[in-house]
Amino acid sequence: GVRVRALYDYDGQEQDELSFKAGDELTKLGEEDEQGWCRGRLDSGQLGLYPANYVEAI
């Protein structure tokens, strides 16, 4: 996976979405899909989806 850092807070709206705060680091686990979602893993171990444009590569 690729380490990325959140640029903005994001509150997951669905069960399969991650929630994070600006500045949090997570691991991107795949390329974004056509809707702009990426699969990732928080350092807590939680897996889920997040909007790709909310993070930057570290």
Rank of each mutant, 00 (worst) to 15 (best):
E14F: 09
T27I: 14
L42T: 13
E32K: 12
S19M: 04
G40R: 00
R3G: 02
W37A: 08
Q46I: 12
Y54D: 02
S44P: 02
R5C: 13
I58P: 06
A57K: 06
C38T: 13
R5G: 03
E17G: 13
G23T: 04
G48A: 00
G40F: 00
K28S: 13
V4Q: 07
D33L: 11
D33A: 10
E34C: 12
N53D: 03
E25D: 05
Q35C: 09
P51F: 04
A57R: 11
V55T: 15
P51A: 04
D24Q: 15
G40S: 00
F20Q: 00
Y10I: 01
Y10F: 13
Q13D: 06
G1V: 10
P51K: 14
L49A: 10
R41G: 06
L47H: 13
Q35K: 10
G40D: 00
L18P: 02
Y54N: 04
C38Q: 05
A6N: 00
P51W: 03
V55K: 01
A6Y: 00
E25F: 12
L49R: 14
Q35F: 13
D9I: 02
K21W: 04
K21L: 10
K28Y: 13
Q15H: 06
A22E: 11
G40N: 00
W37Y: 11
G30D: 13
V55C: 13
G40M: 01
D24H: 05
E14K: 14
E34H: 14
A6D: 00
E17K: 12
E32N: 02
N53H: 09
Q13K: 11
L7K: 12
G12E: 05
Q35R: 13
G30Q: 06
N53F: 15
Q46P: 05
R39F: 13
G23N: 05
Y54H: 11
Q46F: 10
D9L: 01
E56W: 03
S44D: 15
A6M: 01
S19L: 02
L29F: 11
Y8I: 08
L7G: 02
D9R: 07
E32D: 14
D33H: 07
C38M: 05
L7Q: 04
L7W: 02
R41K: 14
V2C: 14
Y8T: 13
Q35E: 15
V4N: 02
L7P: 00
R41W: 05
L42H: 15
D24F: 02
L7M: 13
